[in-house]
């Protein structure tokens, strides 16, 4: 199909859709954009359709929505962290009366000078971090960055060691042969399941162990390990597909139920 014919068809479809929207708003149950709630719905619908238009091709509508998304989301997180961390944690310690003016329901506690200095240091470090935006002396931001990195490294080292290593090893050390509650015969289902779990973890670890060449028994275990890992990836993939489809259903529900009201609410 020629590019001009393609464009004409798109314009006709868009025009027909716009006309239908006008008629549906005027004579149907659709809310008009001349109230605050209606305007909000129309803006939300326009932005949703603009993002979905990317499925056809990259286009100005998508670019507008994308640019707006970048700006609005960045500012949203700034606002959130300002009120939650800078006002709630910092201002309340350094300048309690100002914090109380901003959030009247805040409970102000007396703090001693050591604590005050500690939070003053946080303020200084924060300013040093933002100093990176200044034309000169960007290296100053390395100090607070070093605090963040050092804190995260120390914290993660012990936290991961406990939760992702010790606990995981502990929960993997389970009996390989499980007997029936009466103690007489072997409970085959539990036994095979436990062998799958323990064997799967060992084979998975062998796959990640590159200090020994993956040959012979080691190679076979490694091969089994990648199969187990593939099952894990498959499960994760299945859940991702379900999650994304659920989000899409949510957006379609918004467009057809909340906005266009084709389906009754």
């Amino acid at each position: 199909m020629e590019a001009t014919t393609k464009k004409t068809i798109i314009y006709i479809v868009l025009g027909a859709f716009a006309l239908w929207l006008i008629l549906w708003t005027a004579f149907g149950p659709m809310e008009s954009p001349f109230s605050w709630q209606g305007l909000g719905l129309w803006v939300a619908a326009f932005l949703s359709l603009s993002i979905l238009s990317f499925l056809y091709d990259d286009n100005p509508f998508y670019k507008v929505a994308e640019s707006l998304f970048i700006g609005v989301s960045a500012a949203y997180y700034i606002v959130y962290s300002t009120w939650n961390a800078l006002v709630n944690y910092l201002l309340v310690k350094l300048w309690p009366s100002a914090a109380k003016n901003l959030i009247p329901e805040l409970e102000i506690k007396e703090i001693h000078i050591g604590e005050w200095l500690w939070y003053f240091l946080a303020l200084v470090m924060g300013i040093m971090l933002v100093w990176r935006l200044a034309p000169k002396g960007g290296w100053i931001s390395r100090w607070p960055l070093a605090v963040l990195v050092g804190w995260a490294a120390g914290m993660n080292l012990t936290r991961y060691l406990v939760s992702d290593f010790t606990k995981q090893v502990q929960t993997t050390l389970i009996p390989l042969v499980v007997l029936q509650p009466d103690g007489g015969s072997i409970a085959w289902y539990e036994t095979l399941s436990n062998i799958t779990l323990v064997g799967g973890v060992l084979c998975g670890l062998i796959y990640f162990f590159f200090s020994v060449e993956h040959k012979g028994v080691f190679g076979k275990a490694s091969r089994l390990g990648i199969w187990i890992i593939m099952i894990t990836f498959g499960a994760a993939f299945g859940y991702t597909v379900m999650g994304r489809v659920a989000l899409l259903v949510g957006r379609m529900e918004f467009l057809f139920v909340d906005w266009m009201r084709i389906v009754a609410q």
Binding site: Y160, D164, Q168, L197, G204, I228, I229, I231, A235
Partner: peptide, 19 residues
Amino acid sequence: YPQMAGQRAIMIGICLGVI
């Protein structure tokens, strides 16, 4: 069972990397 086994192997590997 199998999914958890793979996940644990990955978690232990990640943990050693983080440490």
